[in-house]
Computed example of a mutant assay.
Amino acid sequence: MQKPAYPDSEANSEESMKEKIGFIGLGAMGSGMAANLVSKGWPLTVMAHRKREAVDRLKELGAAEAATPKAMALASDVVILCVTGSEEVQQLISGPEGLLMAAKPLLLIDCSTSNPAITIKLAEELARQGITLVDAPLARTPKEAAEGKLDIMAGGSPEAIARAKPILEAFAARIVETGPAGTGHTMKLLNNFVSMGYSAIYSEALMIAAKAGLTPQVFDSVLRGSRMDCGFYQAFFEFVLHRDENAQRFAMANALKDMSYLASLAQALQAVNPVGAAVRNSFATAVASGHGQSFVPALSDVIAATNGITLATNPNGK
C-alpha cells in the first residue's frame, strides 16, 4: 500500500513558508552561518566579495548567487549582513547598486560589530524606506558558527525580533534580546571591551613577569584553575604557551576598531572611561607596529617587544 502523502506535504508546506534569505559577508563566521541556513532548508542567495571559495561551496549546497546588493534585495525577503563594521554596512545599503536601490520592503539583520550610534540613526532612516533593522552581533568563534551554536545579542522591536528569531536559530544556540535597535551592538561592544581588556591585562602582566624573571609557564601555573581562570584565559594562553595562532581568531585591527567604537559611544554618553582608553591604546600600539592582522593573543608579544623582551619560549622550544 502506498504511504500517505501527508508528511511530505507538510514538509513541503513548511519549506514554502520560509522566507527567502540573502547573505552578505562569507568570511570566517559568515560562511558557517550561511551553510547552516541552506542546509536547514532556508532559500539562500549569497554574494562574492574578494574570494569565491565559500560562494562555490554554498552553491553546491543549493544556494543561489547575486552579483550586487541590489540584486540580492530583489531576490530576498530578509538580508543578513556579516561584515566588519558600520562603514561596510552603510556602503552595502547606500552605495552604488546598494540594497536601497531595490526600493522594496526588507528585514535587514546586521550581524556585524557596528557603532551603536550609527545603528540607531540607520534604523530610523531605513524605517522610512520600509526596511526594518535588527542588530544581531555575534559571540563565540567560527567553530561555533559552523556548528550552529553561536550566541547572539538581538536589538530591535519585539515584532522584528520575532520575525528574525527562526532565521537566527539556524546558526545560534542562544539569542539574548537586548532591547530596541542599537542595544545589540552596544552589548557587543561591552562584551568585546571585557574580553579585550583581559587581553591587555594578560599581556602587560606577562611582560612585567618576564622582566622580573618569571616565565609564562610559572604565571600560568598560578592562574590556571584559580578564580582568575576562564575559557577566554585558556584560549589566550594556547598562544602564549604553545604558539597556537588559531586558538583565538580575532584580528587586532578589528579589536582596535571595536575599542574605537566604544570610545565614540562613551563620548556620546558623556562617560569618563579611562580603562577603555588604555585598552584601546594597547591595540593601537599593536596596529601601528604592523601587527593589525595578527590575532589578539599576539598582543602579548607586542607588549613584550615594546619593553625589549620576548615571551616566545615554551617547552617545545618554539
Rank of each mutant, 00 (worst) to 15 (best):
A210D: 04
T285S: 13
L269R: 09
G179H: 01
S157A: 12
S203F: 07
T186A: 15
T68S: 14
V275T: 14
G197I: 15
A28V: 06
V83A: 02
A170D: 13
A11K: 14
F250V: 01
S264M: 09
S9V: 08
N314I: 02
A253Y: 06
A145C: 10
A263F: 05
P216D: 07
Y261V: 03
E10K: 13
C82L: 08
P274G: 11
C111F: 00
D244Y: 02
Y233D: 05
A66D: 03
G27N: 09
C82S: 15
R50H: 09
S221D: 11
S300I: 05
Q248I: 04
V78P: 02
T132Q: 10
G30P: 03
S282P: 06
N316M: 05
P4A: 08
F219P: 04
G95L: 08
R52Q: 10
I152P: 00
P69S: 05
T141A: 05
A284Q: 15
F23H: 04
C230M: 10
M1E: 08
A253P: 02
A28R: 09
R57W: 00
D151S: 15
N273S: 14
R50M: 04
M259P: 00
R280I: 02
T186H: 15
F23R: 04
L189P: 00
G197Y: 15
M17N: 08
P116N: 12
I152S: 06
G290D: 09
A117Y: 01
A146I: 00
T306M: 12
M33K: 07
L122D: 13
D8N: 12
W42P: 00
A304F: 11
A263T: 14
M29D: 00
R140G: 00
L44Y: 00
K188T: 01
S114T: 06
N115P: 00
G25C: 04
V83M: 03
K143H: 09
D8W: 07
I175N: 02
R163D: 01
L26E: 07
A102C: 08
A200L: 12
A266L: 11
S199F: 07
Q91K: 12
N192D: 05
R50G: 03
R52E: 10
K211C: 08
S16P: 02
S76N: 06
A35I: 02
L265F: 09
L256D: 02
E15L: 12
R52T: 11
F239E: 10
A253G: 08
R128T: 14
D56A: 14
M187C: 14
R52A: 12
I175W: 07
A209M: 09
A277T: 10
N314T: 04
A209R: 03
H49L: 13
K3V: 03
N115W: 01
A34Q: 06
E144W: 02
M1V: 06
E10T: 11
A48Q: 14
G292Y: 10
Q234T: 10
P43I: 05
I208L: 15
Q293K: 14
G98R: 08
G148P: 05
A235V: 07
S221G: 13
A73M: 11
